[in-house]
Design a protein around this nucleic acid. Structure first.
Lengths: 221, 221
DNA sequence: GCTTATTTTGAACAATGGTTCAATTTAAGA
DNA sequence: TCTTAAATTGAACCATTGTTCAAAATAAGC
């Protein structure tokens, strides 16, 4: 079984033109969903932004909900891979402290957001939406939680005496701070400048690392 | 001018019955908005939950947007008052450190959420919605920012050498952590137990105070 | 108790928005 | 080149939903 069983049987390969349409639709959906939320987003707005007829959105994306899931999934895999790679590389260079671990979790995202592809900033809003709304809990479970668990494993290894619940608490607060950073207007502006972005990231990491350390120390006493 | 000029002229006092309807509608709106978001919420659901005819919602609440604003405003004033009172009282008992200042900001909210009125938990979701969505920026500016500025003044006074931007950064991250705490499923469960609630709050305050302190220390060097 | 502003009710309206579909065009595979 | 699956198009469908309205019921003010 080399392919997912959910994949529809195809008698022909998709044409280059259809691939381009599909890509434009996903990009437009990402932008509109991030801007207006799931309920607020209109399939017609997505079609208009992608410059395709209305019917084509459903043809390529399926239902509105399926389209949303696909948009979220599209970048989640790449992001998870980058994070785990950063963690593996850092571990190869010696023992990790809290700051280093959180840095491996934060930096790949921030590098993308500050990078050339502006769609990554829209994606941050999608992650915040999914994280905040219990209706999308299954997406979090499937796409985000495994990586988070991996990083929490690392922190737990650093502090064998504290419960995983305490580590999770600090981690959740840290992710909340990260999302606040990425979705706030003034930070987005800061990300435009390379030096400002660097300083901002260090500030965020310092905040979260010290916060986690304090919470863990509190539990240890 | 003892009354707001925007207030409609009234020839008669509202009846007790109309006051009860109005209150039930606002409570229902709070619950439904918190559960489904602004776009996802249906005026019909609000009417059904309040057990009033559909038309009565518009009669008392005005447009859907006006109703949402009123629901948010309703508790904002009380919350702001409690926070400022806590701050004033703490200042009367001696010099404040970072932990004490943040405690004055966090505890009134958490006490309400852990208290007898379950609607305060729904309200936390509304605050998170308003904070996250740029479309409601004017609500944040009017209702939330003044109190936040007051608390940041206090932190700035503690650390005269660091820029207000650095203080604001830590404060925003702290509020994000607070909202993550209040809107996450597992924390809500913890709030049910008085002792668990106490421990959770201390953990949150410890995280944010240490985070802010680290960010400020980083800026001072 | 009378008057009348206010509240309540149920229905209807008009616009919105997700989805479906038949017909047409395009291009992949042989 | 020929066949035909896939992609595209534009329109229509139909449930949903915010809002309005006129008539009836209620209760405040005198």
């Amino acid at each position: 079984m080399t392919k997912k069983t959910t994949e529809k049987q195809r008698l022909r390969a998709p044409s280059k033109r259809s691939l381009a349409s599909r890509s434009r639709i996903l990009d437009a959906a990402e932008t509109v969903f991030a801007r207006d939320g799931f309920e607020g987003a209109k399939v017609r707005d997505i079609a208009a932004l992608a410059e395709v007829p209305l019917g084509l959105v459903n043809h390529h994306g399926g239902s509105k909900e399926a389209l949303f899931r696909e948009v979220v999934e599209r970048r989640a895999e790449e992001l998870a891979r980058l994070r785990l790679e950063a963690l593996a590389q850092a571990k190869g260079q010696g023992a990790l402290d809290l700051t280093a671990i959180l840095g491996c979790f934060f930096r790949p995202y921030l590098a993308k957001a500050a990078g050339s592809d502006p769609q990554w900033l829209a994606y941050a809003r999608l992650v915040a939406m999914v994280s905040a709304d219990p209706a999308w809990a299954d997406i979090s479970t499937d796409l985000f939680d495994p990586t988070a668990q991996r990083f929490m494993d690392e922190i737990c290894a650093l502090h064998p005496k504290v419960s995983r619940a305490v580590v999770a608490e600090g981690f959740v607060y840290s992710v909340a701070a990260l999302l606040a950073f990425l979705t706030s207007e003034w930070r987005i502006a800061a990300l435009a400048s390379q030096s400002d972005a660097q300083a901002s990231v260090e500030g965020l990491v310092a905040f979260c690392a010290a916060g986690c350390a304090a919470r863990i120390a509190q539990a240890e006493t």
